[in-house]
Amino acid sequence: MPAVSFDHVSRHFGAVKAVDDVILDIAEGEFFAMLGPSGSGKTTCLRLIAGFERPTGGDIRIFGEPVADLPPYKRQVNTVFQDYALFPHLNVRDNVAYGLMIAGRGKRERHAEAEAALEMVRLGGYGSRKPSELSGGQRQRVALARALVNKPRVLLLDEPLGALDLKLREQMQEELKTLQRQLGITFVFVTHDQGEALSMADRVAVFNEGKIIQVGSPEDIYFRPEVPFVADFVGSSNVLPEALVARLTGETCPAAIRPERLRLASEGPLKARVTGLSFLGLSTRVSFEAEGTRLTALLPQDVARPREGDEVALSWAAEDLHLMRAGQRAGA
């Protein structure tokens, strides 16, 4: 039985289709990412699971139970909010113990459990501080402990690492993943950062304009995008338009090729002009223009670099050109 299932779920705000006819199953124990640009419907989907939004159509089930009419406080899910939403008038211990207090647990018991949850996120001994006395990373951990102490069956995370700086974010990515493995709870998290989605999740759903465009493992999403939007949004693949692909291969659909798989050659199927170079350390990023299409290649440092304005030929191994047959209908 899936932990969360969406059956043709829609959430329309007037004419705005925030979530439009989404079908999705999230398996128990899965680390699931909802990835998409802002306004793509991923956060609304999360809020539908939490119960802050009601669907205008379709059926949502959590562990098989229809939840459309259940308010947030009757669902076995907990949320880590984007702004953490720690209660400013309570100290850290009472913040973490809030859910247990509402559930009617005794003071001593809930304080002990809160302390254990704080230990789990490596904040043991911080219980009597106020949230305002903590750093952003610490608040994030408190928010995590406050949700996990209730032993939810599904944990929802709304851009959990968005407010942290780069180094802290990478560290928290590791910790979240470890924590999820240890607890075996289903994690559903929303992000607009493709790197974050690819590195943490078991499966990723890519959202655009209220719809799920593609669901798959990070490798699927990265190497085998089904439509140009996914190729472009996840890791900035080069998208070759249908006409060009037709001339090169005879297939009538767009295709994607990863920047690191494009090679410079003296002879090749595609002529291109170099429009820019940037040094990235491990590699050099070269921008081209070829028959009206902008392309990027990542060249290793041991390859001779072209100059801006050079006319070059591009080649690739046949298997690296990924044809997006689904993209014929979905468009660019």
């Binding site: 406080y73 949320t79 702004d83 939403a85 209660f87 509402i102 559930a103």
Partner: peptide
């Protein structure tokens, strides 16, 4: 989001108002 957080943690409207 404080109100949503409270309801997310199991508090109904009256408990959210009070706590």
């Amino acid at each position: 989001s404080l109100i949503e957080a409270s309801m997310d943690l199991g508090a109904n409207l009256f408990q959210t108002l009070r706590y």
